[in-house]
Amino acid sequence: MRARLPELLADIEELVTCESPSADLAAVARSADVVARVGTRRLGVPPERIVLAGRTHLRWRFGDAPAGVLLLGHHDTVWPFGSLATHPYTVDGEVLRGPGCFDMKAGLAMAIHAVAALADRTGVTILVTGDEEIGSPSSRALIEEEAAGRAAALVLEASADGGALKIARKGVSRYEVRVSGRAAHAGLEPERGVNATIELAHQVLAVSALADRALGTTVTPTVASAGTSANTVPAAGEFAVDVRVRDAGEQNRVDAGMRALMSIVDGSGLRVAGGPNRPPMSEEASADLFARASGLAAGLGLAPLTGVAVGGGSDGNFTAAIGTPTLDGLGAVGGGAHADTEHVLVGELPPRAALLTALIGDLLPTGND
């Protein structure tokens, strides 16, 4: 993998310099073309293109083998189109930067190079989706179908701090709370209005009360808006809610609480949309794989692996929920996901890719290495 580093860096640059914000279907399609080109160059065969709800996903499937291995990643990013102008791709010494480099285009390149290094790829599938950053609305069923019956799902999301693997993830729910009132002139006859902002404020407090710090359950009102002008009683308002939970029971409890919300201000209306998006991923789903990876790392002379539970969700939540052993955070080492500081540590790419290759080979029925 050290010998492959120049090619690996060239592929990462090619992926990063094709912008792919999730909401831009044309940009995601162009990015899929680039991922396909890079993968075909290294793997020798083109992927299957799967377009669902206008979003382009890619799949390389290398033969059939019982209980094969699924490598899972995504090529969409949170970065809006034009981000390369303010966050250009650069490699400065040991630090690589660029929009989406850490989350998770470096991981995609690593997956391709790891599979390319296998003597026998039979039983390996690489699935690269195009909508993970918005909750995988079109790809979830595809992911679950590909993961079913596999010996393992290896998720190429970026590592946690210090290169730690992600051995557990919280479940995620998303909601939109919409309130309605009645407009009126705020100076002449405010009493004729029904103030949606006041109703919204009541609901924000009610939603926040659903959190349980002791259980690690966070219920966070985020983006909010109400009204049309400073001198008008607001007729409508809305806010988004982000929920993170450690177990399914808490996800169900919070969902029931959201559905039970009732309007407070006389004459106002209330509607709640959304619900659970990703089920929790427990440590049980990753325990055996983490132990196996730790043994392989020691055999390769790498530093001891660490594993952490994280609050963020990924497509690994879906694979774990259907009973497929899942290990996440196998991608790049670095930091700053979704932020101006996003970066990848170049020196960590070869050992990380070598570990991935060894783990895939160890899991395949033929014992490839």
Rank of each mutant, 00 (worst) to 15 (best):
N277K: 15
N277R: 15
H202D: 02
R140K: 14
R37H: 06
L215W: 09
F102E: 12
R244F: 10
A236Q: 14
G187L: 13
G227I: 15
R169D: 11
L156H: 14
V45A: 14
F239N: 01
L300V: 01
P99R: 01
T319V: 12
A160E: 05
L154I: 05
V177H: 00
D24Q: 06
T220A: 09
R55I: 09
A339E: 15
A114E: 01
D131A: 09
D369Q: 09
V219T: 05
A67Q: 06
N231M: 09
A309F: 07
G98P: 12
G162W: 04
T326S: 07
D255L: 04
E250R: 06
L302I: 04
D242L: 02
L58Y: 02
A26F: 09
I126C: 14
D328H: 05
L296S: 06
V172N: 15
E94H: 00
A273T: 10
L261V: 09
A85Y: 11
L52P: 04
L108A: 04
S159C: 11
L156E: 13
A23C: 13
L327F: 04
R182M: 02
S139H: 06
A116S: 14
P21M: 13
S225V: 03
L200K: 10
H87Q: 13
P234Y: 00
N252M: 14
T228H: 15
T222G: 05
A235M: 01
F318R: 12
P6V: 06
R42H: 08
G267E: 06
A358H: 01
G216F: 03
R182Q: 06
S136F: 07
E132G: 03
